[in-house]
Simulated scan of single mutants.
Amino acid sequence: MQADIAQATAEQREHRRRLPSMRGRDRGLGHRDAALMAKRLRALRHEMMEEVLQGADVICATCVGAGSEQLADLSFPLVVLDEGSQCAEPQALIPLTKGCVHAVLVGDHFQLPPTILSPDAAALSLSLFERLMRLQVPAALLQVQYRMHPALASFPSAHFYGGRVRDGVTALQRPAPPGLRWPSPLQPIMFLNVHGQESSGEGNSKANSTEAALVVRVVTALLAAGMAAVDIGVVTPYTAQVQLITRMLQRMPPNPSVLQGGGRGVTSDARGVEVKSVDGFQGREMEAVVFSCVRANAQGQVGFLDDWRRLNVAITRARRGLIIVGNTATLMTDPHWAALITNLQERGLVTDTRAVGLNA
């Protein structure tokens, strides 16, 4: 089948090459033949795809893709739905209505729900996963985490999961990222208290230039100490702050040095550092994460930072080190943020730029 497709493709390419030189009736017939050749090629590819799918034991698809024309004639007696808690219920139903007998939903309803932009569809923010959890359908908790340094995992486990999540890695397996003067060398987490001021961007998004400048200094320190850009992630709740930090990093002078990490060539250029919203970082991980909280105002308004699930996602992306940049006075008006900051204060992990050697 692959040989037939290769031959048909070569014939089509050759015909297209000759088509411009044809004239009169030959040109009209040439266009007709081109259309027939394209149709035959599509049929061959469709036949090959059907052959592959019919012989496959496992088919991977998005929820919407499971309802595509290519899979129309297939049924799925066993469905494993990953990221089930972030999937809108109508989407989840697509694979489940294709002959499903057994279903396994994998997710975490203590993290962000489906993204629903229309106020008229707000009810769809309740995923099928969370609906089943509320109905007390039997569920199993994966109780061992293998991502984070134990010092990073201790607060989320205690505050969000009732202390049921244990560590499958040791502190020695997650050494603190170099380049920063950590308040506690055995606990690679710090909250940098910043007295900046938020500003409004497009579409009521928020930015904080003071925090953005500090984030760039943190990233610069990590890179200068030998971390690769691909191992550093900057996370922030607001699109305007994502754009501001991205612009500032893009303005950094290019660094031509290449670090050899794990057998792969990786750049230490600041422009290679990934900057995303909290929502965009769900399901991801980085060796070091810098989290810019943005909100800083006299009214103590935290906006959608009051969603504890967003906080949970933000502080559980890092493997080896987490740096939170924010304004404690504003954030502590929210009970979940107050719990985090109080926990870090008790552990001596709330500090300022001077104490960790990050003065401008």
Rank of each mutant, 00 (worst) to 15 (best):
L74A: 06
A296S: 15
V219C: 02
I323S: 08
V230E: 09
R131G: 15
H46G: 03
F110R: 14
S157D: 07
R354P: 04
L135G: 00
M248A: 08
I245F: 00
R217E: 07
D120Q: 11
D4T: 10
A360H: 10
V275N: 10
A221F: 11
M48G: 01
D57Q: 08
E11C: 09
E50T: 07
S85P: 12
A10D: 11
A61D: 02
D307Y: 02
A213E: 15
L222R: 11
V302N: 04
R18L: 12
R319L: 13
Q241G: 03
F110H: 14
E346Y: 11
D307M: 02
A270W: 15
A38D: 13
R174P: 06
A66S: 15
G168V: 03
S205K: 00
Q241V: 14
C87L: 15
E83S: 03
E198H: 04
F191W: 15
Q260S: 05
D334L: 04
A153N: 10
S154T: 05
L142E: 04
F76Y: 07
P177K: 09
Q241E: 08
M1P: 01
A213S: 13
A318I: 00
L344N: 12
Y146M: 09
G283E: 10
L172M: 08
G196L: 05
W308F: 08
N297F: 05
D231W: 13
V242Q: 13
K206R: 14
V219R: 03
V313N: 06
N193M: 00
G30Q: 06
